[in-house]
């Protein structure tokens, strides 16, 4: 069982770690290749190397000397591996974030499920009832085993942040917990302050 604080930390925003890491690795590879080519071309690896063709006959001869199954099989395996990695990465980047339903009761013979949209709608209505909140957006995140709520609240200009921060838990989230009959409901809240209508000075 993951701790509620870990679940709520994950609920703050969609994780971009994999995408960022893979993009960084690709960038590093590109820079490294460019550096190697420039270094070789500048003659730092020897004047002989700098004047040799890129696809060196020496290398081709060495490759041709290998048993054919090794070179070709290796190339095919590498290609398949790259394709699988690419497809997994693509699926991961394109997959939308899940909105899990909340399963309250899953004993044999009966189930009680609160759909994601019902939960989000109820909490949103409560959150918008708090003084100082102009607009609220609520959705469920995570997976069915560890659902969490993500709230985004826009506060009126000049509203008391401390008050809203306090009421949010005592009224909105406590009510949601009571209604659903759960002890903890991990939630991540993002405040947008002072987003009143822009005033124009003429």
């Amino acid at each position: 069982m993951t701790k509620p604080s870990t679940i709520s930390a994950k609920a703050l925003a969609r994780s971009y770690r994999t995408e960022r890491t893979l993009t960084t690795v690709t960038g590093l590879l590109a820079v490294a290749i460019a550096a190697v080519v420039l270094v070789a071309g500048a003659g730092w690896l020897g004047e002989f190397r700098a004047r040799r063709p890129v696809l060196d006959p020496l290398v081709l001869d060495w490759l041709g000397g290998l048993p054919p199954w090794l070179a070709r099989g290796g190339a095919i395996a590498a290609g398949v591996l790259l394709a699988v990695l690419g497809l997994w990465w693509l699926a991961r980047s394109l997959r939308p974030e899940r909105r899990p339903d909340l399963e309250l009761d899953h004993t044999d013979g009966r189930t009680l499920t609160v759909t994601a949209s019902a939960l989000a709608g109820a909490v949103r209505a409560d959150a918008e009832g708090v003084a100082g909140v102009v607009k609220a957006r609520v959705r469920s995140v995570g997976d069915a085993a560890e659902p969490a709520l993500r709230l985004r609240l826009w506060l009126r200009e000049g509203s008391d942040l401390r008050q809203v921060w306090h009421e949010l838990d005592t009224r909105v989230l406590a009510r949601a917990r009571d209604t659903l009959g759960v002890a903890v409901l991990p939630a991540a809240v993002r405040f947008e302050l002072g987003s009143a209508q822009r005033r124009r000075v003429r």
Binding site: P4, S5, W165, D169, T170, P186, A188, V189, F191
Partner: peptide
């Protein structure tokens, strides 16, 4: 955190 399991953040712009 106003309560256990509730994370609150705000944007730098706000």
């Amino acid at each position: 955190e106003p309560a256990a399991g509730v994370r609150v953040t705000t944007s730098p712009r706000a």
